[in-house]
Design a binder for these strands. Structure first.
Lengths: 404, 404
DNA sequence: GTGTTATGTTCTTTGAAACACCAAACGAAG
DNA sequence: CTTCGTTTGGTGTTTCAAAGAACATAACAC
């Protein structure tokens, strides 16, 4: 019944555990080392399914290109010859840029997702695309000596809170920033000389959590972030980020959750992000605003029944959106970030119960809600991942270009 | 900035246009021929990105294995040497099985998605899993002589209206059939001796429409079918069927569309399939039931304002579900089948307008609603695709096994 | 110590695909 | 109707990533 008479496994595609978009096995190994930060040669052999000798050769090439380095085996003592450990080179790095309504944050992130540097440039008012690009370019210019001496920069990734076409890095519409049809990637690339790509912030956060955070080792994940500018979502299915026809997929903030709900800025009514917002909570708490930890503290301190009622109201709407998501995606993990994470932390079992009772049995049984694991570095890591993308797709070409 | 110093394109993964899950280039070519039914060698060369000589060698192997055959070039006259046409062998086929509440349909489908034979076995009552398997096995047994003489059967695919784990072909829950935890694939495999796999019917329909129907050439597609047993959905993103952690993804019938809506059999309230159902329409029309064409005829003939109201009510709920889907998936095509296709046909611009006004600008601009293109053969083609899956993943192994 | 096990190392083999070159089959131009 | 340019198929050669075999090495277990 089975395939049978094949002399050996198809040499073009070994049983890889990573997404199959990898160009070749050199890229596969680079990605694995990037994702795991440390991996013994023996582990790499198992994960890739390649032959021991092949893995040895490939690592040799990566070492020669200066992309990874090997250290003496320090793993737990066990029978057999110890296997050297492979780590990403600390000199490979990507730049991350995250424009928000009150700041532009620029980061320097190592291979392995280690945030080396994070510079938050606060702005008086909402930055225009041009301003955000200028700020980022200036900060990067300030780092340039260091960058050129100590690092090999693979690219810049920009995380944008809005609809972004990742093919050309154009922001179609970022409502809270007031941007429309801004070719941010091209602008920043011209201003800095580095290759640049842009994508939706929540999508990048989802990828970051998939690789380094609460979704590590999973293939199906939903990320939802609640912030001052609404609710953003990123969906990873079968190990791959859902892009859609133009890269706009993942807008879970505009899931319908309420009949005759309020009008959303998107034009529709009853969207998740109009019914579930941190603004309503701050208002009830008598605060004019604040960040997520402040919100959590205030909510925990409050004994107002109105606040409690609003919390449970928002949780019930959140449950409806999550019910939909669970039924349509059958994820293993749902990651709640920002004030949605706070809402969950306040009443985890309440949301879990709502989800279990509303979602379909099969999918509901598997979906586990988690708070985000990467904290304040999340967006830097996610955006940097975009800056690493082309490098990881073809490390040999890049390594050669970088060493040249 | 670009990769540059690589002597040649990575030989392991040419710029293929198909999904990257293909094991090797032999499989790639087989799939292309299967999907397009006719393809000249020159076209195959362009599509695969492989070298002319490589394509020639590969086709030679496929011909030797009896999987495809070549015919004299009949293409439109143009400059240059004419290229022979490659077609799938008519002897390769898969079996399709589709159990419903009132019948079990068995089909024989050629490579290329041509339905050779379709046998609908009507049942007095809802068939149990055992009964459905016995019926299918009996019909297949009846065809066995023919099958063994004239065909090489690659496998059986079962389309099940319910939650199916495609890994082991177990039906987790098919509410309208009343099945729970039935290992249908194993049962049918044991009963017939053919390899068998099972999956959700709407998911298979989505794949069929993607390959041969209204979604041909697209990569992002949503399929929604409305039938007597509710609303089923299948989602194709980035050219791949959304599976989810256990293969339960795609249940768009249980999208939330109404606050304080009726209780759904799934446990939640306000699901699309409780608010939008053909049962309500039949009731208002004073009919006890019927099939889709009958419904369309009756709806078109009716002048009752109650019926018109119900149609627009159902369309508005459908629009909400589609709005969600468009925002989260950014599809190019939305395919409406069954009575949902009828609803759309009655007032296409009404639904289009609702969708345009409610969904977010970016994604909405691209999503086009279409009726299903494959008609009554749809489910046979989809299920057969499942029966072809393992063959297409490794045609060389299969070809050898089949010729042996 | 000695045996066992797991791994790294080196050299050879393999096979899929590219490549270079030539032949074939067409339309277009004169 | 001949010639030319173009596109494709066919054949033999070359390339190169990966497998495989044999050997070396470094740990544990006793």
């Amino acid at each position: 019944m089975m395939s049978s008479p094949r002399q050996r496994a198809a040499p073009t595609a070994p049983p890889s555990e990573l997404d199959p978009s990898r160009r070749n096995n050199l890229a596969l190994i680079t990605s694995l080392v990037h994702h795991h930060r440390v991996l013994s040669r023996a582990q790499l052999t198992k994960r890739t399914g390649l032959n021991r000798s092949t893995v040895g050769t490939l690592i040799g090439q990566l070492v020669a290109l200066g992309l990874v380095y090997e250290t003496a085996p320090t793993g737990e003592a066990q029978v057999g010859r110890p296997s050297p450990e492979v780590r990403p080179s600390p000199s490979i790095a990507a730049l991350a840029v995250y424009p928000e309504i009150d700041a532009v944050t620029i980061g320097l992130v190592n291979l392995g997702g280690i945030v080396q540097k994070k510079i938050r440039f606060a702005t008086e008012r909402i930055p225009s695309a041009r301003e955000a690009v200028n700020i980022a370019a200036a900060v990067i210019e300030g780092m340039r000596t260091e960058l050129e001496h100590s690092y090999r920069i693979t690219g810049i990734g920009v995380a944008v809170p809005g609809l972004v076409n990742p093919d050309d890095g154009t922001v179609r519409h970022a409502p809270h920033l007031g941007w429309r049809d801004e070719p941010v990637a091209r602008m920043l690339s011209e201003a800095t000389g580095y290759a640049c790509q842009a994508a939706n912030d929540a999508s990048l956060a989802a990828e970051a959590e998939l690789i380094f955070g609460a979704g590590a080792g999973r293939d199906n994940l939903i990320y939802l972030n609640g912030g001052a500018s609404g609710v953003g979502g990123g969906i990873i299915s079968n190990g791959m980020l859902l892009r859609g026809a133009s890269g706009y997929a993942g807008e879970l903030g505009h899931t319908f959750v309420r009949t005759s709900g309020e009008q959303c800025h998107c034009g529709a009514t009853g969207c998740l992000e109009t019914e579930v917002s941190q603004g309503r909570l701050f208002e009830l708490l008598g605060l004019s605003g604040g960040d997520t930890p402040q919100l959590e503290q205030a909510l925990r301190a409050s004994s107002s029944p109105a606040v409690a009622g609003e919390i449970s109201r928002q949780l019930s709407f959140l449950a409806i959106a999550l019910r939909n998501a669970v039924n349509t995606f059958n994820p293993e993990v749902i990651i709640l970030d920002g004030f949605l994470g706070v809402l969950y932390a306040l009443a985890p079992s309440a949301l879990d119960d709502l989800l279990l009772s509303q979602a379909m049995d099969g999918p509901a049984a598997q979906a586990k809600v988690h708070p985000a694991a990467l904290g304040s570095n999340l967006m830097m890591i996610g955006a940097a991942e975009l800056g690493f993308a082309r490098f990881l797709a073809d490390p040999s070409g890049f390594g050669a270009a970088l060493t040249a």
